[in-house]
Structures are given as C-alpha cells and as structure tokens.
Amino acid sequence: MNPYRLVRARPEPAFTVTFDGREIEALPGQTVAAALWSAGVTAWRTTRGEGRPRGVFCGIGVCFDCLVTVNDRANTRACLVPVRPGDTIRTQDGIGHEG
C-alpha cells in the first residue's frame, strides 16, 4: 500500500526541480516539503549555531524548522509553499544569507 493507492489518486504529470543541483521529480499539488520527502530527502537546513540538519517538524507552518532556499529566496517554509516546475531548491545554511 502507498498513500496514492489508498486515496486512489490520479496525479497530473510530474515535473523536474533541483535540490542542491540534483534533479528530482515533483508533482503538481505538492508542497516543497512533500516533494523533498517523496525524493527521500528529510533535511534541508543546517542550524546557524551548531550546523545541525533540520527538516519538517510541525508540518503546518508554525515551527519554522523547515526553512529552505527556493529560487534564491531564503527562509521559505517548505511545508507551506507549493513546488513549481523548474524550482531551484537549496539547503539553507543558518539564516540563509551569505557573509
């Protein structure tokens, strides 16, 4: 069993995005977080203090753990933002600003 079979989903055709330069497939309707989980990625931020990996925690936009850089925009909440064809998703280091 998988979630798609459970709800008898007929998703629209997949498209490609990149995560840290690697191409991954994403589906229309997915958030950035759902697309990354589907690709087996569970961490996409390193904390600014200890450099520890983080990903989804609350899943509903409250905790800000899932912050990621999408199309050069840092501090995007992956669990809220829909993934779009051609998105460039990058691991966010610290607060996401260079220097």
Binding site: P3, V7, A9, A33, A34, W37, F57, C58, G59
Partner: peptide, 20 residues
C-alpha cells in the same frame, strides 16, 4: 530529521500524500 510532530506527520499525509 525524521522526528516530526504527530499532527505534522498526519498533515503531510492528508495534504501531500507523503510519508516521512
């Protein structure tokens, strides 16, 4: 990573059809 809230796991499944 891999530790999520119970409600978060449910929200990702119900909304995004995805398992962690």
């Amino acid at each position: 990573p891999g530790v999520v809230t119970a409600g978060g796991a449910q929200a990702m499944l119900k909304g995004g059809l995805v398992l962690p």
